[in-house]
Amino acid sequence: MNVLVKDPIAWTDVGAVTDIPLRGARRVPTPDGDIAIFRTGDGKVFALKDACPHKGGPLSQGIVHGHAVACPLHNWSIDLASGEPMGADRGKGCTPVIPLEVRDGRLLLGRS
């Protein structure tokens, strides 16, 4: 029988959920560039590569509203769950989503 085994994800504890301000974001540097972790007004958290699909703007520096962030460079709105630009810029590229889990109030970033 063929069983598909997915690579297990390695999780790294990068801090507490409450270390990120509500409607804010923090950066986590990695050798492949920064990861941005966002916390929305309703307390949900999301992780994306910290680079806008437009011209690489650091999304962690944008204004978080609803479940989106406005890129600080040219104001594209990026959907936090999918990494996709919204509105008029829909379909113009996509920022990679990074695996993120919350356990007991801690943030775990995944590498697969």
Partner: peptide, 16 residues
């Protein structure tokens, strides 16, 4: 201070 420091440096040298 949190504005100017990364959340964590634990992945800085982690292999990708």
């Amino acid at each position: 201070a949190e504005e100017f420091t990364p959340l964590s440096r634990r992945m800085e040298f982690a292999p990708s």
